[in-house]
């Protein structure tokens, strides 16, 4: 028994949903680590979109982009976690509500 093929628009809608879940999480969550996870979620939704379009257009450029995005996302989260640790050492918190030194 074989599964029926998934229509491209289903995948595109799914990845758009993931992207906006990530954006929503970034805007409403208060924990820095969850915010970092939300950024990763957004980037992975982009990857899914690229692969779907790549399949649809039968062009390799989209799949190539995904490799670059994965690599850069890894570098970005490494730096991000480093910054969060540095912040935790001086502020003893990762709650964005308590990071309020700089404002008007």
């Amino acid at each position: 028994m074989s599964l029926p093929p998934v229509e491209p628009w289903v995948v595109l809608a799914f990845s758009a949903a993931i992207f906006f879940v990530g954006l929503f999480g970034l805007l409403v969550r208060r924990n820095l680590l969850i915010i970092l996870m939300s950024i990763e979620l957004m980037l992975n939704a982009v990857n899914l979109t690229y692969v779907t379009f790549s399949h649809q257009l039968s062009s390799m450029a989209g799949q190539m982009s995904v490799f670059f995005i994965i690599t850069v996302a890894a570098a970005e989260s490494a730096v991000g976690l480093g910054l969060v640790i540095a912040l935790y050492r001086t502020l003893k918190t990762v709650d964005t509500d308590e990071i309020t030194l700089l404002k008007d």
């Binding site: 950024i39 991000g80 910054l83 540095a86 030194l101």
Partner: peptide, 13 residues
Amino acid sequence: NEAAVKYFVLGGA
């Protein structure tokens, strides 16, 4: 530190 984390989160988004 606070500036770096703010910049990172918003820049990543």
